[in-house]
């Protein structure tokens, strides 16, 4: 009889620290980050001033929040391209209400925006989880519906900084310990998402559904409900991002955040979240978000490079997905080789 393959825990114990670092999934990303950091040292040393680092984190916090929601959806094997429109809808509604009732405390608008986002997500989830629509098609349709609704509700009106109350803008623009509030909120959300995905039952169910729908179903998980939950979470986070966006830039109209869904997907893909579902961890998304913000900082800083943004972004996604797929294949090959050696 063939020997039993070693269990994973025993295999891990034998690895040295060096090997463990090499096998760490986000190793390549960290190397890329360090290389870019060194490059910045020579090309744009201004990046290392505390003020510009803090500003960089502030400007990219919205992307990071969207990426957390997008990650939850991608983990179940779906995709949500309506997040930017959800952001715009919730931002427009809550900000318009804020300008009409300036005396109401800002926390109310946060709750309103979360509720609107969750409703948008619920509709997506209902279409995909219950009515079994293809995620891409369903969210493509709702992307245009939500954006159109945002236009209808705002009436095409722009809201300028003079209409914003101090109480409202301080949500994003205020700072604690020199770091902007919006960045703190993002960090808290990352921690909460990490705990939720790794240590709670619903979080593990998301992974189970993404890894293998059939086996998840057989082991008693209600697939539809988990799918709906993931889209609701994604929608709620996008809704929150909406109110933070308007508070951050003190401006609001129906066309805000056009194309942000691309950025969020790019961050997820960079962070090693597999689009087939089931693989991907929050630390990868954190590193992906930081890497993406460094790249966009480069693009913004170098003269004449701003027109390159779309092309570079597209190329990054393609390369990242290709690398993901190749490493997955390599892992499978390695596992097969180990198994072959044992037999």
């Amino acid at each position: 009889m063939a020997a039993f393959p070693k269990t994973r825990t025993s295999a891990q114990k034998q690895e040295s620290i060096f090997e463990r670092i090499l096998n760490y999934k986000q190793f390549g990303l960290i190397v890329a980050l360090i290389l870019l950091g060194l490059l910045a040292k020579f090309i744009t040393p201004a990046m290392y001033q505390p003020a510009s680092l803090v500003a960089m984190l502030r400007n990219n916090s919205i992307y990071a929040i969207l990426a957390i929601g997008e990650m939850v959806v991608i983990l179940t094997g779906g995709i949500d391209i309506s997040i930017a429109s959800t952001l715009s809808l919730s931002g427009v509604i809550s900000t318009t209400l804020m300008t009409q009732n300036p005396s109401v405390p800002a926390i109310v608008w946060v709750i309103v925006s979360l509720a609107i986002g969750a409703l948008c997500g619920l509709f997506n989830g209902f279409l995909i989880g219950k009515l079994k629509m293809t995620p891409m098609i369903a969210t493509l349709a709702t992307m245009y519906i939500y954006r159109g609704l945002a236009f209808l509700i705002s009436g095409g009106v722009w809201l300028f900084p003079n209409k914003f109350t101090e109480d409202f803008t301080v949500m994003s623009q205020g700072s604690i310990l020199g770091i902007y509030n919006i960045t703190w909120i993002t960090i808290i959300l990352f921690l909460v998402a990490g705990v939720f995905l790794s240590y709670t039952q619903p979080g593990r169910r998301i992974y189970a559904v993404g890894t293998n729908v059939e086996s998840a179903h057989v082991s008693g998980i209600k697939i539809g409900n988990v799918t709906v939950m993931s889209y609701v979470l994604c929608g709620a986070l996008s809704g929150l991002a909406g109110v933070l966006y308007t508070a951050n830039y003190s401006i609001c109209y129906y066309g805000i955040a056009d194309g942000f869904e691309m950025q969020a997907i790019a961050i997820c893909v960079l962070g090693g979240v597999s689009l087939i579902g089931g693989t991907g961890r929050i630390d990868g998304v954190v590193i992906g978000a930081v890497l993406m913000s460094v790249i966009s900082y480069f693009i913004g800083l170098l003269p004449g490079l701003s027109v390159w943004q779309d092309a570079i972004q597209g190329a990054i996604i393609i390369v990242a997905v290709a690398i993901n797929i190749f490493t997955e294949r390599m892992t499978i090959k390695r596992i097969l080789k180990e198994r072959g050696a044992m037999i």
Partner: peptide
């Protein structure tokens, strides 16, 4: 690669080239 993500990426890549 999944067709969704490839074409999302290339849609911004191609338009980026035009830009």
């Amino acid at each position: 690669m999944p067709a969704v993500i490839v074409t999302i990426a290339t849609s911004s890549l191609f338009r980026g080239i035009v830009k």
